[in-house]
Design a protein around this nucleic acid. Structure first.
Ligand SMILES: [Zn+2]
Ligand SMILES: [Zn+2]
Ligand SMILES: [Zn+2]
Ligand SMILES: [Zn+2]
Lengths: 130, 130
DNA sequence: AACGGCTTGTTATAATATAACATTTATTAA
DNA sequence: TTAATAAATGTTATATTATAACAAGCCGTT
């Protein structure tokens, strides 16, 4: 019996849409899509998004209020995310670079703060756009 | 004649409030404050915020939709920002670390993207809260 | 069956941000 | 100086993003 019934019905629906998308999706554009399939209200989408974020299946691009599926082999790492964002075409790529991850995960500043998480967004022009 | 009339009236008003604040401020809490002083509408605040961001006088904490004054000696650098954020008390500190800045400014990924800007937000517990 | 935890459904509303248009003020440059 | 241009302001309305509050259903455990 397909043991990985990890995701609930709504969570699956929302995840599949994000996964298939070519770029980051906004919550209300997801809502528009799933309305064809029974979900009616924003809250149902936001609840699914929250869960998916928590599971690391998706990430939020904070500067865009948009969501992408994790591309790093189902990243447990909700904790260390890095993206490159093209300011012209809005293409977003999740960066998977172990040196960068290491560098940032071990970063210590002078304030004595203990970090458990970070999010990094690079901006510029992608190959096509520059 | 006080040569540095860089900021317009509204811009100054908004900037002073952000500068004096102990932590990040939300746009509508700024609006509430400046309403005592003549500004009436959200748009007037957002316009001032946009300009201040552009000038590098303030930064936006994307994960919080909130604004802080730049603490790095009037950072021309709207282009390379890093913050530490306490997830308990919400204290935010702008990180000023030249090694980090260098590392990130020179970072190259495999996609051949040319970066002109980045924003990094670290999360964790501050000294007091841990 | 009764309980607890999680998920869903639903309506309403809060919080964040921009569009569109009219007017005023400051800067530039003929 | 003055006409043209650019920047900032004022105002109303509306778009976009996100959460509150409450009721009900599903599912595994005891
Ligand atoms: Zn990931
Ligand atoms: Zn591009
Ligand atoms: Zn700064
Ligand atoms: Zn703290």
């Amino acid at each position: 019996m397909a043991q990985a019934q990890i995701l609930s019905k709504n969570q699956q629906m929302v995840f599949q849409i994000i996964e298939k998308a070519k770029g980051p999706l906004k919550a209300y554009s997801i809502l528009y899509d799933v309305q064809k399939k029974g979900i009616k209200a924003p809250l149902q989408v936001y609840r699914a998004l929250d869960k998916l974020l928590e599971l690391g299946k998706i990430h939020k691009i904070e500067s865009r209020n948009a969501f992408v599926a994790c591309k790093n082999s189902n990243c447990e790492i909700t904790k260390a995310t890095a993206f490159s964002i093209c300011e012209k075409c809005e293409k977003v790529t999740e960066i998977n670079n172990s040196k960068l991850t290491n560098y940032l995960s071990n970063f210590q500043d002078t304030t004595g703060m203990k970090y458990s998480k970070y999010n990094l967004e690079f901006f510029g022009l992608c190959k096509k756009c520059k």
